[in-house]
Amino acid sequence: MWQPPLNTWIKCNIDGASKGNPGIAGCGGIFRNHAADMLYCFAEPLGFASAYQAELSAAMAAIEIAFKKN
């Protein structure tokens, strides 16, 4: 169950997956505020990768997006 962040915070939920391990992989995430409004989302194909690499790619992408959007 999704829990909202504090009023002044933005929450990012991420996930990465691969079909096979390793296999065709992708990752994505969604940024939402305390009212569950979608502020930004992303999805990235990763090609051939492990589930671990997909999860790390999602985390790195979320950090880069948060940095770029301040």
Rank of each mutant, 00 (worst) to 15 (best):
K11D: 00
A62D: 00
K19F: 08
R32M: 02
K11C: 14
D15S: 05
F48H: 04
G16Q: 06
M1K: 07
A17E: 10
K11G: 10
P22H: 01
L56I: 09
Y52A: 00
A61P: 10
T8G: 12
F67G: 12
W9E: 15
N7Q: 05
I10T: 05
W9S: 12
F67E: 03
Q3T: 08
Q3W: 13
D15Y: 03
E44S: 07
A36V: 00
A58S: 02
C12A: 10
I10C: 14
H34F: 14
S50W: 14
L6A: 02
P45K: 08
P4T: 09
G28R: 00
A35E: 11
A54N: 01
I24S: 03
N70M: 07
M60G: 05
S57Y: 00
E55W: 03
Y52T: 06
C41E: 13
Y52M: 04
P45G: 15
I65F: 03
Y40D: 06
M60A: 12
A17I: 06
P22M: 03
F48Q: 01
G23R: 08
N13Y: 13
F67C: 04
E55A: 14
L56R: 11
F31E: 13
N7C: 13
T8I: 13
E64I: 15
A36D: 08
K68G: 02
M38H: 12
Q3G: 13
G26T: 12
L6S: 12
K11R: 07
C12P: 02
S50F: 01
G29N: 07
G20A: 09
Q3I: 13
D37T: 10
A62Q: 01
I14K: 06
E44N: 07
M1D: 07
A49Y: 02
R32F: 01
G20F: 00
C41H: 09
I65C: 01
N70L: 12
F48R: 00
G29A: 11
L6C: 12
A43S: 15
E44W: 07
F31L: 14
M60H: 08
K69T: 04
A17T: 14
I30T: 10
M38T: 09
L6E: 03
K11H: 11
F31D: 15
L46P: 13
I65H: 00
W2A: 01
K68D: 05
P45L: 06
S57M: 07
F67M: 10
I14C: 15
N7F: 09
I65P: 13
M1N: 04
G16L: 00
K19N: 15
D37S: 02
K69Q: 15
A36Y: 07
I14S: 14
L39D: 08
N21Y: 00
M1E: 11
K68A: 09
E55V: 01
G28D: 01
E64M: 02
D15W: 01
A43C: 15
C12L: 07
N13F: 06
I30W: 01
W2I: 12
A35N: 11
A66V: 02
Q53P: 05
L56Y: 02
I24P: 04
S18Q: 01
A61K: 03
C41Y: 11
R32A: 14
A43P: 12
N21K: 05
E44T: 10
A36M: 08
A61Y: 03
G47N: 07
Q3L: 09
I10E: 12
F31P: 04
I10V: 15
M38C: 10
I14F: 10
L56M: 05
N21I: 02
D15Q: 11
S50Y: 02
